[in-house]
């Protein structure tokens, strides 16, 4: 296609098709999972929730790696900056969905929408961290200034995740006798559950990759248009200056 409109290509078409197929399979199999004794039908959420969580970790991992590649002088390229920002945005979507589906699962299982469980708290903190990162990226600045600033912020955010992990882990285990591990899914898994869960991982990974390719291309277009409009504006000013008496 010579007259391509949009950010699609052969790559995104095949990725998108694979993602759609895997997602459809996950939903179809997930909804027909047998009800378990402990959790009843709610165990069906296992097809999507762990996959979403995995995709969010993957997205933030990619952000950190891309930021490091930008900061390393030999591999510095604007593509890493765009990749880092795009991946973080998709990661925020996946983290929000992880929290939403976890909450929906927790309400009938634990009886409350939210439990101050270590993993939940950590996910919520990570969501806040990356919302801050995205807000920082939206601050108007020259492209390379924005890239340096956000690459450093991304690495700072990743560095604090293990500290956060230990803080919430110790906090919850020291202050709460009853461990939630007994009621989380994972203990009563048998073959079919593991299989569907893995399919969910695959589906969410494919969805992430497909979104990422599109999002990076959108980010590149955004930057190019910004530059163009700046050039046009400069050009107009120059012409005005020549015309002025």
């Amino acid at each position: 296609m010579t007259n391509r409109t949009g950010t699609a290509s052969a790559l995104t078409l095949s990725l998108g098709l694979a993602a759609a197929l895997a997602l459809a399979g996950t939903v179809a199999l997930g909804l027909t999972l047998p009800a378990t004794v402990e959790q009843g039908e709610y165990s069906r959420l296992i097809a999507i929730h762990p996959g979403l969580a995995w995709a969010s970790y993957l997205a933030f991992g990619v952000t950190a790696a891309a930021s490091a590649l930008w900061l390393w002088p030999r591999t510095r390229s604007s593509r890493w900056d765009l990749l880092a920002g795009s991946s973080a945005e998709i990661g925020v979507v996946f983290t929000a969905l992880t929290l939403a589906t976890g909450s929906i699962w927790g309400r009938p299982t634990w009886g409350v929408w939210w439990v101050w469980d270590a993993r939940l708290t950590l996910s919520a903190l990570m969501l806040a961290l990356y919302l801050g990162y995205l807000a920082l990226r939206r601050v108007p600045a020259p492209v390379d200034v924005r890239a340096r600033r956000s690459a450093i912020a991304a690495l700072l955010a990743v560095a604090v995740v293990p500290v956060n992990h230990f803080a919430v882990e110790w906090w919850r285990t020291l202050h709460q006798g009853r461990s939630l591990a007994q009621t989380t899914p994972g203990n009563d898994l048998d073959g079919i559950f593991v299989g569907v869960m893995l399919l969910g991982f695959l589906a969410m990974t494919l969805v992430y990759c497909w979104l990422l390719v599109h999002r990076v291309r959108v980010a590149r277009l955004e930057d190019r248009l910004d530059e163009q409009s700046l050039a046009v504006a400069l050009d107009e000013r120059r012409r005005e200056a020549v015309l002025a008496p």
Binding site: H49, L97, W105
Partner: peptide, 28 residues
Amino acid sequence: YVAAGYGITLLTLAAYALRVVWRGRSLS
């Protein structure tokens, strides 16, 4: 609850994907 979990996931992903693709079209 199960329906809500699946629904919210699929709808959000679809909405976000449409937003990205449409923005790509208008920008290009």
